[in-house]
């Protein structure tokens, strides 16, 4: 039972201002969780804006250094990875961003990103190898290199572009994917196919996915476990369906009650005070 990634009491404090009026903002306060190496799962991180979920994501990616605690990825402290080992770490932990239209440079062709990832992190040494790796990754998401080669981001719809973003993350054969609000900018008719794709990647490729979202309904639908964050702290955690069916913490209950669904009525949303 080895951990793929383990967060041990990690926290992050930002300081703002100069010598005078110095303010400290505690974005993440002592979070613990761990994902098992041999048990791929979709782990949802739920919280409102400002709850520290994106700061947590940046720490997992090694962009921010934790101010306290340790983040262990496959037995290695993420913070202490030497410069030489950085690329190997990045190959194993890959991000997917919220807005596919902002994630890609509109003036660059899409296959450029796939080739770059293949040569930098995927170990491809020739053009042919990079193309083969790109094509393989694109096929995992239901596309192929023939469809993508030479095309610019504006030629694809949001859903297709997000698939390309996921394929790009898969090129380096990662163990962990960090998806920050990956479906909130995708059209409603295509959203569920992206969400289903995550489930498919978990089942077929054995990938673990950290799914950051504020959408409780998709978290319920796809994730195995979840943590609910508020003001940098975890207020509730556990198996996704159990927690969302019967939330215990007042904040989780409030979140649960705010989910709008076709069965909700007008009266339930009218403020009472």
């Amino acid at each position: 039972m080895t951990a793929l990634i383990e967060a041990k009491n990690i926290s992050k404090t930002f300081s703002r201002g100069g010598v005078f009026a110095r303010r400290r903002i505690e974005a993440v306060k002592g979070i613990n969780f761990s994902l098992e190496e041999d048990k791929p799962e979709i782990f949802a991180v739920i919280g409102e804006s400002g709850s520290g979920k994106s700061t947590l994501a940046r720490m997992i990616l090694g962009i921010h250094k934790p101010s306290g605690g340790q983040l262990i990825f496959q037995g290695q402290d993420v913070d202490k990875i030497p410069r030489a080992g950085r690329a190997a770490f990045m190959a194993r932990v890959q991000p997917i961003f919220q807005n596919p239209f902002e994630a890609f440079n509109p003036l660059k062709k899409l296959d450029f990103y796939l080739t770059m990832t293949a040569t930098r992190f995927g170990g491809a040494t020739s053009r042919a190898e990079a193309d083969a790796a790109s094509d393989q990754a694109l096929r995992q998401v239901g596309l192929s290199l023939d469809e993508i080669k030479g095309r610019f981001p504006h030629e694809l719809s949001g859903g297709q572009l997000q698939r390309v973003a996921i394929a790009r993350a898969l090129v380096s054969k990662p163990r962990l994917i960090l998806a920050d609000e990956p479906v909130s900018m995708v059209d409603a008719s295509l959203r569920m196919s992206i969400v289903n794709l995550f489930g498919d990647l978990r089942d077929r490729l054995g990938l673990s996915i950290i799914y950051i979202t504020h959408d409780l309904a998709t978290a319920y639908y796809i994730s195995d476990r979840l943590i609910i964050m508020r003001h940098g702290e975890v207020v509730e955690q556990g198996p996704a369906r159990e927690v969302l069916s019967n939330p215990q913490h007042p904040y989780s209950q409030q979140l649960r009650a705010a989910v709008l669904s076709p069965s909700a009525t007008l009266e339930t949303i009218t403020p009472t005070h």
Binding site: S189, L190, R191, S193, L216, A217, Y220, Y221
Partner: peptide, 14 residues
């Protein structure tokens, strides 16, 4: 296609 809490049936995209 709207996912709902309490309902685990498969949803699909178009």
């Amino acid at each position: 296609s709207l996912p709902r809490i309490g309902d685990v049936t498969q949803r699909s995209g178009l």
